[in-house]
Design a protein around this nucleic acid. Structure first.
Length: 264
DNA sequence: AAGACAAGCAACCGCAGGTCC
DNA sequence: CGGACCTGCGGTTGCTTGTCT
């Protein structure tokens, strides 16, 4: 594949945007939208590449951007989501209305990471039912608003989870008596997950005396708000891996190994 | 007051994945 | 089916501003 010439070679401007450029971009997008970023600067009369325009719009000019400092609540949310999702800034941003992935990334590197380092490594804690439920509440509240919610938690097959490169044997954990937060985490890493056709969540929910059953006690499983976020049709073929199965699967599996939130 | 250093943040870069033809 | 193009993402850079000495 041939890479498109960079901005400089095309005689396009780089660096900080001026107020005038901002105005041109905003006016153009308000009138015409941004169907094609590559064509946009030419049509709008900007000496910028489409990529630069898109970045400026999504990170700064979009009307729904929330400016200003992050609240403590937002910082805690970022911290928790980072524990669950890692450096998937766009996925984290999707759960923080008005905040951009770039902004969150900056906040993480400038504030949160340092605070975390200052607090040292967090230690895993054995969770009580109460604290588990509390975390479940927090995570449920963070569920993206655009997720369909009509699929019950017990239902999904995990047949179409992407295969991973590990030799873990999923069959060893599909026996509910053996399902624990720990071996389930191992199973997630393993390629066996891709082949498993078990009703995983039912097994998890029925597993007694495990981290998962603590996290999702029977009463919580009946809670209509705790619904698996995918339509049945998508489960067999095209799971929305990025924001869907990926997030919730890891969320549930990692829940048993939640760590203490450090003092800020 | 001025230079050095650190912190914060906007913007860029390169890559990957999806779509179109 | 494969190449070209487009978009989005995460990592990184470098400029600006604030703080310290």
């Amino acid at each position: 594949m041939v890479r498109a010439p960079c901005c400089e070679k095309m005689g396009l401007k780089k660096g900080p945007w001026t107020a005038e450029e901002d105005q041109i971009l905003v006016t153009y997008i308000q009138r015409h939208g941004h169907g094609n970023w590559r064509a946009l600067p030419k049509q709008a009369g900007l000496l910028r590449c489409g990529k630069s325009c898109r970045l400026r719009w999504t990170n700064y000019l979009r009307p729904d951007i929330k400016r200003g400092n992050f609240s403590r609540e937002e910082e805690e949310t970022i911290y928790r989501l980072h524990e669950l999702l890692g450096n998937r800034w766009s996925a984290i941003a999707a759960r923080l209305p008005g905040r951009t992935d770039n902004e969150i990334k900056n906040v993480w590197h400038t504030h949160l990471k340092k605070r975390l380092d200052r607090n040292g490594e967090t230690k895993p804690v054995k969770q009580s039912l109460e604290t588990s439920k509390c975390n479940a509440d927090i995570e449920r509240d963070l569920k993206p608003v655009n997720f369909p919610t009509h699929q019950r938690l017990e239902c999904p097959s995990i047949t179409s989870v992407s295969p991973q490169s590990s030799s873990s044997d999923f069959s060893s954990v599909t026996d509910s008596s053996l399902v624990t937060g720990e071996n389930l985490s191992m199973a997630v890493e393993g390629e066996g997950v891709a082949d498993a056709d078990e009703n995983l969540w039912s097994e998890v929910l029925s597993a007694e005396n495990t981290g998962m059953s603590e996290y999702f006690p029977a009463a919580a499983a009946e809670d209509p708000r705790l619904q698996f976020p995918f339509p049945p049709a998508s489960l067999e073929t095209d799971l929305p891996k990025e924001d869907g199965m990926d997030f919730w699967f890891n969320l549930y599996v990692d829940a048993a190994e939640f760590t203490e939130f450090p003092e800020f």
